[in-house]
Nucleic acid binder design. Structure first.
Lengths: 273, 273
DNA sequence: ATAATAGTGTCTATCAGACATTATCTG
DNA sequence: CAGATAATGTCTGATAGACACTATTAT
């Protein structure tokens, strides 16, 4: 086979030798993680935040993240960061969006590939409340988004405004956030939170993401609470049970709810296949 | 307000001055576009490909793309590339996925932020068949994906295999492609095509993407054909019309279909709101 | 017994699938 | 009129919403 020469009369080996990567801009690339869990009493969703010890945004809370290294994909980097923060492996991890505003980091051009992670580790969660790493309650309505931690006496609140713009022929709804509290999230991380939860809401009814937020065996009241937290609206018990019935099977076991009184719940497990 | 010093005792200005961006890997970042249109006779989806004139993958067909420049977002870059290729502005453009395999470009580390674009320009399409830029027919089944152009006598065919893997607690279906033709797509662009069409299929029923692929006014037979091309299955006429009825309104006009015989179609326009 | 929670039954409205029928156009 | 295409009618089965009712537990 004849070696094909290009427009400058170079073969592939010659081309690669003379090629100078510095002719193009080369931003730094990080992976930021929206790690979502559920409070032990199913009263709210939880998000893991870390307190920045360095400039820029020193002392602000941020999503855990880090630079993508040589010889690893962004997904590998997300897994690596995930394990270093939570000591969990093989958890749900899905690429959400890549954020590329030129000024999103004051140091230099940094693009961030955002990932959504869903975990169920209620025990780990409580004990891991260090000073620089904590689980925040997440509340996300149409008007506002709030990340709060009582022990740390910290509230991060943004007001949300729905804006619609055109994308080609079709209308597109989007949230814009404006800070309402003293504390704020570092960088553009509020946008990552918004985009991540939006995607989770869109997918949870047709996918099985909710099952990542409960334990391996679970009761239907528990699973329903998780759906309700994600969708931020109450669901009818019967309709919900009909909806999930094809995805689950009984284990035969029973579980007592944490509250006083009431009948025992049947225990279920996610159906294989 | 007192300037906050970090762990090394630096203020923010001092920190930014001593910060060295070269401490981290900095890949090149490109935007690649899956530009989708529809054949004038609604017989197939079309994808715009460009023939590579340089190494690597010289003479292979590739998705249009380019490096993200300083002071522009990836979305801006996608718009810029879009305009340079099609002379169209304000078309549908949606970020699909960011591809980051370390060896996806033999020259150096290049990450690609992939965008899906939907356009309706049947007249432009035909005339713009240059040697190094052409519209290919796209056929995408569960078994295979094929990009073909009759005038250029070029067929690019991949066999598809469904693979399922675990993402946390849930199963995830994925396509892996293996080349079946002499010609192939450059880089990992087949993965971009697969991911883009997958996303389009998932969204078209709940979103309004199909309206980007027909003209401003359209008939229901035309719109149904577009849905059927995207979903790769026939739809029942009545169910389809019930489904879209809330999204459209009659213009009062009528249109004759291109074929001989048959009743005139009513003309519709997408409902504002 | 009472309050609290878990689980079922059933009616309605909606909607996709399936197929049949009517309407309008060309030649 | 025949053949082709557009538009509509109607039946069925599945399912979400809404609400009522029964079952089981702790105090």
């Amino acid at each position: 086979m004849v070696k094909r020469k290009d427009t400058q009369g170079l073969s592939e080996e010659e081309f690669l030798r003379q090629y100078n990567p510095n002719d193009y801009i080369r931003p730094s690339v990080t992976t930021d993680l929206l790690i979502v869990g559920v409070a032990r009493d199913y009263s709210s969703l939880k998000v893991l935040l870390v307190k920045r010890a360095e400039h820029p945004f020193i002392d602000s809370w941020a999503l855990p993240g880090g630079f993508v290294q040589n010889d690893e994909t962004a997904h590998c980097a997300a897994n690596r960061i995930m394990e270093s923060k939570t000591h969990l492996r093989n958890v749900y991890l899905d690429q959400i969006y890549t954020f590329t505003k030129p000024d999103r980091d004051p140091r230099m051009r940094v693009m961030s590939i955002a990932y959504l992670s869903l975990i169920c580790e209620p025990d780990e969660m409580e004990e891991s409340n260090k000073d620089d790493e904590a689980w925040f309650n997440l509340s996300f309505t149409d008007d506002s988004i709030e990340l709060s931690n009582k022990e740390l006496n910290t509230r991060i609140v943004y007001r949300l405004k729905k804006e619609s713009f055109k994308n080609g022929a079709i209308k597109y709804e989007n949230f814009t956030a404006s800070l309402k509290s003293k504390q704020s999230l570092a960088f553009d991380h509020i946008e990552i939170v918004i985009e991540g939860i939006k995607r989770l809401r869109e997918q949870v009814f047709y996918g099985n993401q909710a099952f990542c937020l409960v334990e391996k065996t679970f009761t239907l009241p528990e699973l329903q609470l998780v759906y309700e937290l994600i969708l931020n609206r109450p669901l009818y018990k019967k309709s919900f049970r009909d909806m999930v019935s094809s995805k689950i099977s009984e284990t035969g076991g029973e579980k007592k709810s944490r509250v006083a009184g009431g009948r025992k719940s049947k225990e279920y497990i996610m159906k294989e296949r």
